[in-house]
Design a protein around this nucleic acid. Structure first.
Lengths: 209, 209
DNA sequence: GGGGGCTTGTGAATTCATTCACAAGATAGG
DNA sequence: CCTATCTTGTGAATGAATTCACAAGCCCCC
């Protein structure tokens, strides 16, 4: 559907809009204007309309957008109308926090497998799922393909684990490891680096007038 | 030091460069070129030089940069030469994972307090720190000021908790709550929204050619 | 000490993103 | 049916970030 490449900043905002639309929907509103969406998200109405315009025409002039309809369009655009099969690799503190995080399940990210390399952890149950050895990923993925692997292992192991995940044929990766990872071009990688986020905050705090 | 406003993308890259420089330093390299830094970070040498040029002149023409010297400059620019006093509010799965995350301590982010509103959690020790009631933040901050509050409470409580933290006089906030928070202009807020990050991945996976 | 080979630092050019501004619809009310 | 009032969708204008391209500086070696 998107004719040209969509900017990352646009996708982030779409995600925000979806959140606001869900709020509006829960509040019982049936109609919303670009101005109201913009106010809620700290941006401008022109920005909202431009963002949407990359994907089509969703509103009625003079009237605004139907909340339910736009919500559904956002979901479709973001690829949230389907379920995603997710595995978590690295069942430490962060991994197990993610395993039980309801925000994921709610949006259709189904955690279907937990993996670790530590023999002490393998076999344990975490939130109704057994922890399996990392070596099992390849075969498990053959039997029942996985869409996304969440990487929550220490920095020192992350690239090796990513290589294994890629070799197993998984092409979507979400990493929480605080390092720069390398993947082939046909694999989509998204990294959340908390250390970097704190450094950004540190910079901002250090440079306030 | 920065003459004009520095782009967020620039700060993110500085953070990356610092990480690479530390790798190079550990590997025993004493000198590095903008080309080598760029290759490591998936950017261009011109980008590296432009990023650095906002803050001064750090290299020698024909030779490159002294690794140790540039590392230190990056630390200074990012505000990492000092320690930051950090509290964590919300000692659930994510909060306690963050409390023990070594990546934070390593870069001078000292966790000095844990707070929660759940009476069942208050009083417990988590990694050598007692969990205190949220109401205590204001007085604790008066006695010994805190630089950064990490917010790891559920979405439904996040804005209220942020208001309390702001009222207590803390002006740096790092939030992991999956909602848009509002703070006064003199408070610096940085949000990591994991749900949004997964949606970004979902979008990317849905729109591969 | 002068020439050749590197690599930085930086204006200029280009590309990308946001904002402006307004015509084109849409509704409602007389 | 016509007018007044909204609000969208979108080219054009502006503004921001990245890339280009090259002069300036530094080192080494002959």
């Amino acid at each position: 559907m998107p004719l040209k490449r969509i900017a990352d900043s646009t996708v982030r905002r779409l995600s925000l809009y979806l959140r606001f639309l869900e709020e509006f929907e829960n509040a019982g509103l049936t109609t919303v204007s670009s101005d109201e969406l913009a106010a809620r998200g700290g941006t401008t109405s022109a920005q909202v309309r431009k963002d949407l315009s990359f994907f089509g025409s969703f509103g009625k002039r003079g009237l605004g957008y139907q909340v339910a309809e736009l919500t559904q369009s956002m979901r479709r655009i973001l690829g949230l109308e389907r379920d995603w099969r997710v595995i978590i690799v690295g069942i430490g503190k962060i991994g197990s926090a993610l395993a039980q995080y309801e925000g994921f399940q709610q949006r259709g990210f189904r955690v279907v497998g937990l993996y670790d390399s530590d023999p002490a952890k393998i076999g344990r149950e975490v939130y109704n799922l057994p922890v399996l050895p990392i070596e099992a990923i390849a075969e498990d993925n053959r039997e029942r393909p996985v869409d996304i692997a969440v990487i929550a292992v220490p920095a020192s192991a992350a690239q090796r684990v990513v290589d294994q995940v890629v070799a197993a044929g998984i092409t979507g990766i979400m990493s929480f490891a605080p390092i720069q990872l390398h993947v082939p071009a046909d694999v989509t990688l998204n990294t959340v680096n908390m250390a970097m986020e704190l450094e950004r905050l540190s910079f901002a705090l250090s440079n306030r007038e």
